[in-house]
Simulated scan of single mutants.
Amino acid sequence: MSTPHLSVQLYSVREALENDQEGALARLAGLGLRDVEVFNFVHRAQELSEALGRHGLSARTGHANFLSPELAREHGATVHSLDETFAAAEQLGLELVIDPFVPAARWGDEQEIARTAALLNEAAGVAANHGLRVGYHNHSQEFVHTINGTNAFDLFVSRLNPDVCLEIDIYWAAAGGGDVVALLRRLGPRVQALHVKDGPIIDDPFSSGVPFDPARTGQVAPGQGEVPLDAALAAAPDAKFAIIEFDHYDGDIFEGIGAAVSYLNQKGIR
């Protein structure tokens, strides 16, 4: 069993970054963090690389939406090509580029699941030309449907090429009462990264038709909620990264991250 590297998803401190990027990065470094997971990085790779370097931080994983360009269009954002995305990832020194979200409507249809897997496999080929690997990050909508007796997420994974990785968000995989420990054992070495977060076991909010409100997730510092984090970490011995993330936190987000750092440090994850 290898010990994963400690990291934090910068999305957790998105508001602090917008207000004072240098101050936010300094506070993360002050908590003992040395690695971060970046997001929305393609258009600002050089700037972000320099900012991280000023604070002794590096990024080895990053989120980029390359499976659902319609999401970027909906928000008026630029749709980047795979080569543009992976060139920016190279510039930052990433190892793994992860798509963070495929809409709920695509997980109830077998053809759409197959198409999503094919797109990810195609991206893996392009990423390899840049010395990178790709992966997928789950929420809860992937686990809602069953197709011919097989869970939609398992069906998706069965169609992925062997070089495609998974980043399992433990909190979201447990939503709706899913057995995240069994899931991690089933996926085995596919799982190269974990999002470590805690809170109540809630129902899937992404298939409800109601706009998602992160404030309703009830997320708390790891070890303070209902998610079986200890067992989940033990069930993913091949994971290279243990990444702290909060979609929302009531209170000082840096205090929440500090508590998460302490929780993981106690397990030898640094």
Rank of each mutant, 00 (worst) to 15 (best):
L155M: 11
L155F: 14
F156W: 02
F156A: 06
F156H: 05
V157R: 01
V157M: 09
S158Q: 05
R159V: 08
L160S: 12
N161D: 15
P162S: 13
D163M: 13
D163Q: 15
C165I: 00
C165S: 11
C165Q: 13
C165H: 13
C165Y: 09
L166S: 05
L166N: 05
L166I: 07
L166M: 11
E167D: 05
D169E: 15
I170S: 08
I170F: 10
I170P: 01
I170W: 06
Y171P: 01
Y171R: 02
Y171K: 02
Y171F: 15
Y171T: 11
W172N: 11
A174F: 07
A174P: 00
A174S: 15
A174R: 12
G177K: 07
G178Y: 05
G178M: 06
D179M: 12
V180F: 03
V181R: 03
V181K: 04
V181H: 03
L183N: 01
L183T: 04
L183V: 04
L183Y: 05
R185A: 08
R185Q: 13
R186A: 14
R186F: 00
L187H: 00
L187K: 00
L187E: 03
G188T: 05
G188R: 02
P189N: 02
P189T: 01
R190M: 00
R190H: 02
Q192A: 04
Q192K: 09
Q192P: 00
Q192M: 06
A193P: 02
A193Y: 04
L194D: 07
L194T: 07
L194P: 04
L194R: 08
L194H: 07
H195Y: 04
H195F: 04
V196W: 10
V196T: 10
V196I: 15
K197N: 10
K197S: 12
K197Y: 03
D198F: 05
G199I: 07
G199F: 10
G199A: 09
G199S: 05
P200Y: 12
I201H: 02
I201K: 02
I202M: 11
I202T: 14
I202W: 01
I202G: 06
D203V: 13
D204N: 15
D204K: 07
D204G: 11
P205S: 09
P205A: 10
P205W: 09
P205N: 10
P205Y: 09
F206R: 08
F206C: 01
S207G: 13
S207T: 15
S208P: 06
S208R: 12
G209H: 08
G209R: 04
V210M: 07
P211H: 09
P211E: 08
F212L: 03
F212E: 05
F212A: 00
D213S: 14
D213C: 07
D213Y: 10
P214Q: 12
P214W: 14
P214D: 13
A215H: 09
T217C: 15
T217W: 12
G218E: 14
G218W: 12
Q219I: 14
Q219T: 13
Q219D: 13
Q219A: 13
V220M: 11
V220S: 08
V220F: 14
A221M: 13
A221H: 12
A221Y: 14
P222S: 15
P222Y: 15
P222A: 14
P222R: 14
G223M: 11
G223V: 06
G223Q: 10
G223E: 07
G223H: 06
Q224T: 14
Q224W: 13
G225D: 07
G225L: 03
V227L: 01
V227H: 01
V227P: 01
